[in-house]
Lab assay of single mutants.
Amino acid sequence: STGEEYIAVGDFTAQQVGDLTFKKGEILLVIEKKPDGWWIAKDAKGNEGLVPRTYLEPYS
């Protein structure tokens, strides 16, 4: 699937089932941008889950 690459600007630990845990500096592939501010993203290992958009910045 296609998506946009974003870099994590902080650590995030999953708070509920379906969230994706990530560390600062990780590159995430954003698959869907939901209007509530929680985006669906995939990490380098292929894990998929919800992430808070405030922790992400476009990666170029």
Results as ranks from 00 to 15, higher is better:
Gly25Val: 00
Gly3Leu: 14
Lys34Ser: 03
Ala14Asn: 10
Ile7Cys: 13
Asp11Asn: 09
Ile7Ser: 04
Gly18Lys: 14
Leu50Asp: 04
Phe12Ala: 14
Val17Gln: 06
Arg53Leu: 05
Thr13Met: 08
Leu20His: 03
Lys34Arg: 09
Glu4Cys: 07
Ile7Gln: 06
Thr54Cys: 10
Val51Gly: 02
Gly18Ala: 13
Lys24Thr: 03
Lys34Pro: 09
Lys33Arg: 09
Thr2Phe: 09
Gly25Asp: 09
Asp43Ala: 05
Thr54Ala: 14
Asp11Leu: 02
Tyr6Gly: 01
Leu29Glu: 13
Ile27Leu: 06
Gly49Leu: 02
Thr2Asp: 01
Asn47Tyr: 04
Val17Thr: 05
Ile7Phe: 05
Val9Asp: 04
Ile27Gln: 07
Thr21Gly: 09
Leu50His: 10
Ile27Met: 06
Glu32Phe: 06
Ile40Gln: 12
Gly49Arg: 01
Asp43Phe: 01
Glu48Cys: 05
Ser60Met: 15
Asp43Val: 01
Ile7Lys: 07
Val30Ile: 13
Thr54Lys: 14
Lys45Cys: 05
Pro58Ala: 14
Phe22Cys: 12
Lys24Leu: 04
Lys23Tyr: 04
Ile31Thr: 08
Trp39Gly: 02
Phe22Trp: 03
Phe12Ile: 14
Leu29Ala: 09
Tyr55Trp: 12
Leu50Ile: 10
Ala41His: 00
Thr2Glu: 10
Asp43Asn: 08
Lys45Phe: 08
Thr54Leu: 07
Glu48Tyr: 02
Glu48His: 15
Thr13Gln: 04
Phe22Val: 12
Lys33Gly: 03
Lys45Leu: 06
Phe12Pro: 03
Leu29Cys: 04
Ser1Phe: 12
Pro52Ile: 06
Val51Thr: 07
Pro58Glu: 12
Pro52Ala: 14
Val51Leu: 08
Val17Leu: 05
Tyr55Val: 14
Lys33Ser: 04
Asp43Trp: 00
Glu26Arg: 04
Asp19His: 14
Thr13Arg: 03
Ser60Arg: 05
Ile27Asp: 02
Ala14Arg: 09
Asp11Cys: 14
Tyr6Cys: 03
Ala8Glu: 00
Gly37Arg: 12
Ser60Phe: 11
Ala14Gly: 09
Val17Cys: 08
Trp39Asn: 02
Lys24Arg: 09
Lys45Asn: 08
Glu4His: 01
Ala41Ser: 07
Leu56Glu: 00
Leu28Met: 10
Thr54Gly: 15
Thr2Val: 02
Glu57Lys: 07
Glu57Trp: 00
Glu26Asn: 07
Asn47Ala: 09
Thr13Cys: 04
Pro52Phe: 13
Thr54Pro: 06
Gly46Glu: 14
Glu26Cys: 07
Ser60Ile: 15
Thr13Asn: 05
Ala14Gln: 09
Thr2Ala: 02
Gly25Gln: 10
Trp38Glu: 15
Asp36Gly: 11
Glu57Asn: 03
Glu32Gly: 10
Gly10His: 03
Ala14Cys: 02
Ala8Asn: 00
Ala14Ile: 03
Gln15Phe: 07
Leu29Trp: 12
Gly18Met: 05
Ala8Trp: 00
Leu28Val: 08
Ile27Phe: 13
Gln16Lys: 15
Gly25His: 10
Ala14Val: 08
Asp19Pro: 11
Glu48Leu: 09
Tyr59His: 11
Lys45Arg: 08
Val51Ser: 04
Tyr55Leu: 15
Lys42Leu: 06
Phe22Gln: 01
Leu20Arg: 01
Trp38Ala: 15
Gly49Ile: 01
Ile7Leu: 07
Gly3Pro: 14
Lys23Thr: 12
Gln15Leu: 08
Lys33Gln: 11
Glu57Cys: 02
Pro58Asn: 05
Trp38Asn: 15
Asn47Trp: 09
Gln16Leu: 03
Gly10Ile: 13
Glu32Arg: 07
Gln16Glu: 14
Phe22His: 02
Lys34Gln: 09
Gly18Ile: 10
Gln16Cys: 04
Glu4Ser: 13
Gly10Cys: 09
Pro35Asp: 08
Glu26Ala: 12
Leu20Phe: 12
Glu4Pro: 07
Gln16Val: 05
Thr21Glu: 11
Val9Cys: 11
Thr21Ser: 11
Glu26Gly: 07
Thr21His: 08
Gly18His: 09
Gly10Ala: 05
Leu20Tyr: 01
Asp11His: 08
Pro35Lys: 13
Arg53Thr: 11
Leu56Pro: 00
Ala8Leu: 02
